[in-house]
Design a protein around this nucleic acid. Sequence first.
DNA 1: TGGCTGCTTGGCCATATAGCCAAATTATTC
DNA 2: GAATAATTTGGCTATATGGCCAAGCAGCCA
Lengths: 96, 96
Amino acid sequence: MQDDKDRFYRQAQIFKALAHSSRLCIIDRLSRGECTPGELTKLIGSDASTVSKHLAVLRAQGIVRERRAGSEVYYRLLMPCVLGFFDCIAQVHGDQ
Amino acid sequence: MQDDKDRFYRQAQIFKALAHSSRLCIIDRLSRGECTPGELTKLIGSDASTVSKHLAVLRAQGIVRERRAGSEVYYRLLMPCVLGFFDCIAQVHGDQ
DNA sequence: TGGCTGCTTGGCCATATAGCCAAATTATTC
DNA sequence: GAATAATTTGGCTATATGGCCAAGCAGCCA
């Protein structure tokens, strides 16, 4: 009962982290290899601070992880199974 | 480019619909068979109007569909592949 | 028709989120 | 140490969302 409630809550946190087009764009990009916030900022086209906050949201849920290399930071996807979500959705939406 | 933006946006809408513990609870219940809003209201324990609005969110994204039978309404899960999401998350969370 | 039940919609408030700019932080290079 | 570049954090505002209550609508039965 309470366990279920907790589990649903934690799962919902993950979905919430995925529930933004810029963050999906980030995940899509990271599925093809590591990337810096700077590069992602160019890709997405919003302010660097905005992108950084999106990355923080994904980090907080363990979806991505960062690695410092000198003055740069590289992010990588920790939860590749989320890519399967896209297939599921595409199936229903009939797109892609 | 623009297509990608659109696709990410529509996918994000789906994730947004899934990003609430009560709605995940609904999906979990519907994965075991049809159910009325009344039953779901008892299960979740919030106001009937709140549950109805959650169902509207899921309906709008094509995740569930309703069927009228006299004065009652039965909801069913249209997107069973979302259940796979739970496995993915559990895998990472190590729970369940 | 009138009343009942089941469900949805409208209205309102409290809270959360996304975005920008500005400022702080960390590492590099001169 | 100062200047620069990359990233993050703080602060603010605008918008979206969730929740309740109250009201509306649809089907059923007396």
